[in-house]
Amino acid sequence: MPIYRIAVGTPGEASQPDAIRAAFAEFFSMIIFVFAGEGSGMAYNKLTDNGSATPAGLVAAALAHAFALFVAVSVGANISGGHVNPAVTFGAFIGGNITLLRSILYWIAQLLGSVVACLLLKYSTGGLETAAFSLSSGVSAWNALVFEIVMTFGLVYTVYATAVDPKKGNIGTIAPIAIGFIVGANILAGGAFDGASMNPAVSFGPAVVSWTWTNHWVYWVGPFIGAAIAAIVYDNIFIEDGGHEPLPVNDF
């Protein structure tokens, strides 16, 4: 991947109105996503009186996250691109589709949105715990790291194929639902092992509110590695040099 595609951005970029609007879009999209996704898990725990996880509960979590992400990406797409994930933003940066300074702005908005969503959930449920992501019995941090790398690779590869690729054509209209579907499918695959985060912000909010940081690094390192691999693979193999253009914000 030619290094010239990666851009730092200008110092004044963070104060531009469109950048600020984009950050607010990421903030509110993240609230929508985390409130529904984390809230579904809290609702399940309440209905089962904190009982053991069941296949039905896993399916419910997958559906809740898939539907919520579909909406969160859709409502932010025309403003920020609907990243709703620091790993997706990192993948876009690696491919030269967003500057570093705008990426940092997105990351701050995404993390704050997740924390606010978890605080709202804790308050509105009367103080119920917003459970942090954790590893299942018998699953090591390195096992979980591989899970997060592979699942996030699938997510960001899907983002590139349906939203970033200049040749996407009409398939771009289904990008939000494709992104929601791959996240739901990955939760069915990895949810029983490490919670299937694929999203550092989704892991960060519950960790802050519950102040639980055990193995938290896995949910940052894994998604960022997976996102970088997906961006490099798709950009180098499937996007032609001559056809590559920095992607306008309103197209992603």
Rank of each mutant, 00 (worst) to 15 (best):
Q110S: 01
L112M: 03
L112N: 02
G113T: 03
S114W: 05
S114F: 02
V115M: 04
V116N: 00
A117F: 01
C118I: 05
C118G: 03
L120G: 05
L120T: 02
L120S: 01
L121T: 03
K122S: 05
Y123E: 08
S124P: 00
G126M: 00
L128A: 08
E129R: 09
E129P: 10
T130M: 03
A132V: 12
L135D: 11
L135R: 08
S136L: 14
G138T: 13
V139M: 13
V139E: 10
S140N: 15
A141V: 06
A141I: 09
W142K: 10
N143L: 06
F147H: 13
I149W: 00
V150Y: 05
M151H: 12
T152W: 01
T152D: 02
G154V: 04
G154Y: 07
G154T: 10
L155M: 06
L155Y: 06
V156C: 09
V156M: 08
Y157I: 14
Y157F: 15
Y157M: 14
T158I: 12
V159S: 06
A161P: 03
A163C: 06
V164F: 08
V164S: 05
V164I: 07
D165K: 07
D165L: 05
K168L: 13
G169M: 08
G169V: 11
G169N: 08
N170G: 15
N170A: 15
T173K: 13
I174Q: 13
I174W: 15
I177Q: 04
I179P: 04
G180K: 10
G180E: 02
F181V: 14
I182Q: 10
G184S: 09
G184R: 11
I187T: 00
I187R: 14
L188E: 09
G190S: 09
A192S: 15
F193L: 15
D194F: 14
G195A: 10
G195T: 10
G195N: 07
A196E: 07
A196G: 06
N199R: 10
V202C: 13
S203D: 05
S203Y: 06
F204H: 04
F204C: 01
G205F: 00
P206K: 09
P206G: 04
P206L: 11
A207V: 08
V208G: 04
V209R: 02
W211M: 14
W211T: 15
T212I: 12
T214K: 15
T214Q: 14
N215L: 12
N215Y: 15
H216M: 09
V218R: 09
V218Y: 08
V218D: 05
V218H: 08
G222V: 01
G222M: 02
P223Q: 02
P223T: 04
P223C: 03
P223M: 04
A228M: 01
A228H: 00
I229N: 00
A230R: 00
A230P: 02
